[in-house]
């Protein structure tokens, strides 16, 4: 009986240790092309510092879908969780494309996936497919300030993520 109790306690301790370890390794990677650290946990919050794909950030606190982080340049602020991944993203030398760290559960697609090389190959095989407008579409960018004004001017009152 006593040995079983001990076993149970050890099991509980191991489970606890695993959780603690998970919390301690709170470094995350930026998984979007252009990320932003914001002053407040809101998309309408002022941008404090830009983040690049693959940048590592230290998570200090999580509030709903927002994470309070310290960026590689030492700036602190808020990043939406959809811009971050626990996976480590490894830049491949001599290429703008990025490899995803291929280790155990951190693996997404080992190595290069569908990237600009594959897109170029696709283009060469499908000459009728024109990317001009896709590139133009990507240039349509709206700043947090414009969004804020658009909502305010139109009398649209957001229930969350509103003006800081």
């Amino acid at each position: 009986m006593r040995s079983l109790l001990r076993l149970w306690l050890v099991a509980g301790f191991l489970a606890g240790a695993a959780t603690a370890f998970g919390d301690a390794s709170a470094a995350m990677s930026v998984q979007v092309k252009n990320g932003q650290i914001r002053a407040t946990p809101s998309f309408l919050g002022k941008v404090v510092a830009p983040l690049s794909y693959g940048d590592r950030v230290q998570v200090l606190e999580t509030r709903n879908d927002w994470m309070n982080v310290t960026g590689p340049g030492g700036q602190s602020g808020w990043v939406h969780s959809s811009a971050l991944t626990k996976k480590k993203i490894v830049m491949s030398s001599g290429s703008q494309d990025v490899q995803t760290g291929a280790s155990g559960d951190e693996l997404a697609l080992a190595s290069k996936g569908f990237n600009s090389d594959v897109e170029a190959d696709f283009k060469s095989k499908n000459k009728n497919v024109d990317f001009t407008w896709v590139d133009r579409m990507e240039k349509f960018k709206v700043s947090p300030q414009e969004m804020k004004e658009f909502l305010k001017d139109g009398g649209v009152k957001s229930s969350e993520g509103g003006a800081p």
């Binding site: 092309k33 579409m137 960018k141």
Partner: peptide, 26 residues
């Protein structure tokens, strides 16, 4: 332009506001 202001603003209130290249409309 108007379509993008409206669409990109809306996208910030979804469950996946940040995608790799962002939301763009045409």
């Amino acid at each position: 332009d108007y379509l993008n202001v409206l669409g990109q603003t809306l996208s910030q209130f979804g469950t996946k506001p940040e995608t790799f290249g962002g939301y763009h409309f045409v």
